[in-house]
């Protein structure tokens, strides 16, 4: 990493506890022998960019997590890196600091136009600043395209788990445009957003569903927004209020498969329900469920 000119911000920020904020930011350019005047100019610029006014003489231990992260960012940016590498940048922050962090990140990307590589397990908040999404598993890196492409068509089951898909139904057979799917029966693949041809054929295929794409009929969540391409009967197993302010319902399909759906009201266990599946929110993925 040292020779490749990569600015690195580790998960715990890695501020040098023996140095002031200013000394932290200046460390890299001092090591590289940047003259004092230029160093001060860069520090001033980074202080403005990252809102670090008044913190320069503090010690890292006195800073909040959000401030520490900005100091670490400033330190990494001071060397004018070709690439910025951030490891789990949101994992130590409270929700307010997450918003702040995202807005600083966006500002940096816009203003400095430095390519930034962000590694995270919790990517939902980061998708709004991402130009491209990659997925890494067992040492292999998969390119998933833009955030929109990744969300529409994650292609790999294990990638889909990170992108909001929570139900995976096994595809038993594909016949031209028709797939026979566990729990659903026959599904017209031409209705799906993605093209099955690009999938890894050595793996099993699954239909990946988002809870938002499966709506309990007559308890719809703005049903007009969710087109009912496919409907299926099932039995509710119970429901709980979820973070989007809607009810999540576990529904068992006649053949035993379980689906996560949403509803605008509590659905009692053992209640018979009709599910309305929006195939635009369904993706065909390859992988293994367990």
């Amino acid at each position: 990493m040292e020779e490749r000119n990569i600015g690195y911000v580790p998960q715990n920020y890695g501020l040098f506890p023996n140095m002031s904020v200013r000394a932290n930011i200046e460390f890299g350019i001092k090591v590289r022998g940047v003259p004092r005047q230029e160093r001060e100019r860069r520090v001033r610029e980074l202080v403005r960019l990252l809102g670090l006014e008044g913190l320069l003489d503090r010690r890292s231990q006195e800073l909040s997590a959000g401030q520490q992260q900005r100091v670490a960012l400033a330190r990494a940016l001071a060397i004018r890196p070709k690439l910025l590498l951030l490891d789990e940048p949101l994992s130590n922050l409270d929700p307010k600091s997450v918003r702040q962090s995202i807005s600083y990140l966006r500002g940096l990307v816009d203003e400095l136009s430095i390519g930034s590589l962000v590694v995270s397990h919790e990517i939902s908040s980061l998708l709004e600043v991402a130009d491209a999404v990659f997925f890494m598993e067992s040492g292999k890196l998969y390119s998933l395209g833009s955030a929109e492409e990744a969300l529409r068509n994650p292609r790999y089951l294990s990638a889909a788990r990170y992108l909001g898909f929570e139900t995976f139904l096994k595809v038993l057979r594909i016949d031209g445009n028709e797939a026979i799917v566990e729990g659903l029966g026959s599904v017209d693949l031409s209705l799906l957003g993605n093209r099955p041809a690009r999938l890894d054929s050595s793996l099993a295929l699954y239909l990946a569903l988002r809870p938002m794409g499966v709506v309990v009929e007559d308890a719809g969540v703005g049903l007009d927004a969710v087109r009912c391409h496919l409907s299926v009967e099932g039995t509710a197993q119970g429901s709980y209020m979820w973070i989007e302010g809607m009810w999540r319902v576990r529904v068992r399909l006649p053949d035993g498969a379980e689906v996560l759906a949403v509803a605008s009201r509590r659905v009692k266990a053992r209640e018979a329900v009709t599910l309305c599946i929006d195939t635009n929110k369904v993706a065909l993925v390859a992988g293994e469920r367990f």
Binding site: G7, F16, N18, F27, I79
Partner: peptide, 27 residues
């Protein structure tokens, strides 16, 4: 001592020796 401190120092261009004397030893 968090080994990341040394990784960061080297990513910023410090040699191993410099990293030891500027980041490890003071801490």
């Amino acid at each position: 001592l968090d080994p990341e401190l040394e990784v960061v120092a080297m990513s910023l261009g410090a040699s191993r020796l410099r990293t030891f004397f500027s980041v490890v030893l003071p801490n």
